[in-house]
């Protein structure tokens, strides 16, 4: 097995295609933490994330003989995990915070909260209360926007990788990312404005 760095995994594809247990165990060891946290951020519920994690690797193992290597192994695993997460989300009854439908061709909503909170001290920007706010704001995003945002801005995938994982065009990924970021900015701006007002 050859490994270049933590973000680019380069295993012996032949061993994996042959469903070699040692190679597969190495793959699970190296990637399962990242996949689990992605699923947890997408699904919030720990049990759902764990179930989806197990399903991801079961499906990955079954599909390994057909892995063509057209995408990286990481992108391929993310795609299986994202599909699992989407299936769980679809099975759930519509949640109030996720019923919002985002249409990609709709005009982008203009910013309304204009308050400069960049000057706030770092300790205030990253205190526990703010971290909770960050999580809550991300959970308010519709599933479509949240998926793109998490893959791009939290997992650090490129636009091309995100498009490959979600089966979307680059343009749709760009539009959804912008919408997600603007919505989060609105939420945080309102929150910080309140904080600044209260001193």
């Amino acid at each position: 097995m050859v490994r270049s760095d933590s973000s680019t995994i380069s295993y012996s594809i032949d061993a994996l295609r042959g469903q070699d247990r040692d190679a597969f165990a190495e793959l699970v060891e190296d990637t399962s933490g990242q996949i689990y946290h992605l699923l947890l951020r997408m699904l919030v519920n720990e049990q759902d994330a764990e179930d989806a994690l197990q399903e991801t690797y079961i499906k990955a193992f079954q599909a390994l003989p057909n892995f063509e290597g057209r995408s990286s192994l990481k992108t391929w695993l993310y795609r299986i995990a994202a599909n699992e997460a989407l299936m769980v989300l679809r099975k759930r009854k519509p949640q109030p915070q996720t019923v919002e439908i985002d249409k990609d061709d709709e005009e982008i909503e203009e910013p309304r909260e204009i308050v400069d909170w960049c000057c706030l001290p770092e300790r205030e920007l990253l205190d526990q209360e703010t971290r909770s706010k960050l999580t809550a704001a991300a959970q308010k995003l519709s599933d479509n926007l949240k998926m793109v945002f998490l893959l791009r801005d939290v997992e650090g995938l490129s636009g091309e990788e995100t498009a490959a994982v979600l089966g979307l065009s680059i343009d749709v990924v760009k539009t959804r990312l912008l919408r997600a970021r603007l919505k989060l900015r609105e939420e945080l701006s309102a929150y910080f404005a309140e904080k600044m007002k209260n001193g």
Partner: peptide
């Protein structure tokens, strides 16, 4: 200018916290 700066800060905050 404020929108751009706070947008960038928003992305940075998520990145740092996660």
């Amino acid at each position: 200018t404020i929108v751009v700066n706070t947008l960038k800060r928003t992305v940075d905050l998520y990145h740092t916290s996660t």
